[in-house]
């Protein structure tokens, strides 16, 4: 078994044994499901509103899972001292990051599918998963970067809230279409909200939103490269 799969399986096992992971993964699907039920109970038409809410839920899902899961996998290793032990085996830093990144993407896709199914049923799932995954890359890299400077989970949770606030802005402003500020485009979630809105509400195809997907992938890859460079540099720094 390759070293990548050893870490992948180990992290899957750790994630399963941690109740917090389950809470993070199920939070957005459950919250969206409850919202849907409440809105329906109030007599509003969920058929249209449900579609309009999908971009917001997808963005929230990517912020929560993207930033939290990968970072938590790293911080737990740091807290237990096992990252140092892993780095004293032949495994490379890239293999460790790749395994943890893959498992985080795997969890995020599962959560996004649950979210879509609960809200609008089995429509546009492949398109929304592609968009959500592209947006998730930036969040994963952001979480990974912040995790390197946190010495404990508590410290991470405190500092990460500052990062989540600006990322959530496009998601909130999605419900105020008259607010069309150019600076919003600096926030990566803007493209995630816009692309998913185009797909679910305007019935656009993946090709129509390829530009937004490309921008998200580029932003994600740049931040991921910065995160990997930072980790490698911090690792070599004598302590």
């Amino acid at each position: 078994m390759s070293r990548f799969w050893v870490i992948f399986r180990k992290d899957l096992r750790v994630a399963r044994s941690e109740g917090l992971f389950l809470l993070i993964v199920l939070w957005a699907p459950l919250a969206s499901g409850v919202t849907r039920w409440v809105v329906s109970a109030l007599g509003r038409d969920m058929a249209t509103l449900g579609l309009q809410m999908i971009p917001m839920w997808l963005a929230m899902n990517s912020i929560l899972i993207g930033i939290m899961v990968l970072a938590m996998l790293f911080i737990m290793e740091k807290e237990a001292g096992t990252m140092a032990a892993l780095r004293l085996t032949p495994i490379t830093l890239i293999e460790i990051i790749a395994a943890k990144l893959t498992i985080s993407l795997f969890i995020s896709v599962a959560s996004a599918i649950a979210l879509i199914l609960l809200n609008v049923g089995a429509i546009k799932i492949p398109e929304l998963i592609v968009i959500s995954t592209a947006g998730m890359l930036f969040m994963l890299a952001a979480g990974l970067l912040v995790a390197q400077f946190a010495t404990s989970m508590m410290q991470f949770m405190t500092s990460v809230r500052l990062l989540m606030l600006p990322l959530a802005l496009p998601m909130i402003l999605h419900f105020f279409p008259h607010v069309e500020a150019e600076w919003l485009k600096l926030i990566p979630t803007y493209f995630l909200v816009r692309a998913s809105h185009e797909v679910v509400v305007m019935n656009a195809s993946l090709a129509d939103v390829a530009g937004d997907i490309g921008i998200m992938l580029l932003q994600g890859l740049i931040l991921l490269a910065i995160a990997i460079f930072t980790i490698a540099k911090l690792e070599k720094r004598p302590s």
Partner: peptide, 9 residues
């Protein structure tokens, strides 16, 4: 010295 092992495994 520090027992750096996975406690949940």
């Amino acid at each position: 010295e520090a027992p750096n092992i996975y406690p949940k495994l």
